[in-house]
Structure formats: C-alpha cells, structure tokens
Amino acid sequence: MLGENFRKDFQKIMASSADAQSAVLALLHEIQKENGYVSEEDACELSELTKIPYSRIKAVMTFYTMYNLKKTGKYHIQLCRNLSCHMAGAPALKQAIEKNLGIKEGEITKDGLFSFCEVECLGSCGTAPVIMVNETYHENMDEAGLEKLIENLRGNFKK
C-alpha cells in the first residue's frame, strides 16, 4: 500500500511533470524512498493512480538498476565493482562486508538492518574504492573505515 507521504508527493510530482508518463521515474524514486524497494503491488497501485498501463511502469522499473525489486535492509550497502574501484581494493572490501554482515552479495541480514549488493561505476573513481549506503557516498573506503561505518550504522539503529 502506498502511504500518506507518497500521496502528498504524488500530486506535487504530477503537477510539475509535462505528462503522467514523464513522472514515472520520480514517482518510483518516491516509492522506493518510503519503502526501500518497489513491490509489484505498489507498481499496480501506481498504474491505477496514474492511469498508465502496468506494463509500461514495469518496463521502467525493471530497466533502471536503481529500483530495488525486492526488500532491502534499512541500510542498503552498494559497492562499486568497476575498474578504478577494483584496482583500489574493492574485492577485499566485498569479502570484508560479507564477513562482517554474515551475508552474501544480493542478500539481506536476518534482522533486516543491512542488505548488500555490488553496482557498476558510481562516478567517484578518484576517491576509489567507494561504497554507497542508501543515498550517501563513502569514499576512499578501506577495511578499517568499513568496520567503523557498519558499527556506527548498527549504533544508530539501537538508539
């Protein structure tokens, strides 16, 4: 079910778009902001709200990789796997993340706090390796920095 917050933003986004179809990317971003991912049900509801055929919404949400199609953790960790990050130590970071969280790439922790996946170039190659947690970049990342970051995120949650 799309929530109250979404419905408020919905009107705003529709009003500032040239037409309903042009609003789809922004609307999907909003859904994801609220729920962490875009579910089939939410996409169906969006289709009804916008009067855009479901197939066209599905086409968009499956084309663009930023839309998560399954549940993600409260903190969704994405590690760049492209060349500059690779040379700067991304493979070791991948191992460290998996070990620390006790999950494999593409999985979510049992408590729902973390999920982890690899992504293609994040456009931050000069400060490689880079990881992104939700919408925030963490650059020049190393294993010690990673430990600290995950610890902080766990701490935030407990508070």
Binding site: S16, L25, A26, L28, H29, F63, Y64, T65, M66, Y67, V119, E120, C121
Partner: peptide, 10 residues
Amino acid sequence: IKVVRGAGAY
C-alpha cells in the same frame, strides 16, 4: 530549468 533524476542506467 527542471531537474530530472535518472535511475542507474549508463
């Protein structure tokens, strides 16, 4: 000027 955000497609 309007800002449009992409969604992860090179």
